[in-house]
Amino acid sequence: MTEATGHMPERDALAAEYVLGTLPLAERLTAEALIESDATFRALVEDWQTRLAPLAEDYEDVTPPPGLFRKVESRLFPEPEPQRRAGWVWGALTGLALALVAAVVISLTLAPQAPLVATLTGEGQTLTVAARYDAAGKELIVERTAGPAAEADKDYELWLIPAGKSAVSIGLVREATLAIPVEALPPGTTLAITLEPRGGSPTGVATGPLLVAGVIGG
């Protein structure tokens, strides 16, 4: 039997436990935040993933039900909206006023087709929010794709958290879809929704529980 000769540094132990999966949720979330913010910690985690990877050979394949990939695709790549064609036809009718109307129609119908940049989900939450970013129009479109609206005396407050910075409130998600002007949305930015009193956090800092979050990939 070998016995460890020394103590693992705390960070390395946390990385090992995160990869092994034994930590309670709060500590897992701490580890996940560190992975995003601390490259040294991220490297420790990757080393443990590689070290323990051969254990994954014991997972048996289970064929997923047919149609599952289709669901992934429809989440990521929504079909073009039918109105788009209408907008196009109206545009072809020319006339300045009509062109203006068409531009509005097109911008309204193009908005949902802006590329999906994150899916906000949370553990134990049915609430799911898709975030799209229209880089040309500098507009973030959030859409509640699953789960209930907030209760009458509450609001879902949306926060933008640039990598390594503190959260900024950017809106209340009351309708199923919400468009917000956002100058830039670089990879690593986190979008998060907390449950707040009606009207949003009174302090400007999140006071309620974190419901769902997602990180912009890239």
Partner: peptide, 16 residues
Amino acid sequence: MRSWLRRGLQSLKECL
């Protein structure tokens, strides 16, 4: 359990 398992992980790392 936690310190027991951590020692196991440490041994594993040293061995690898």
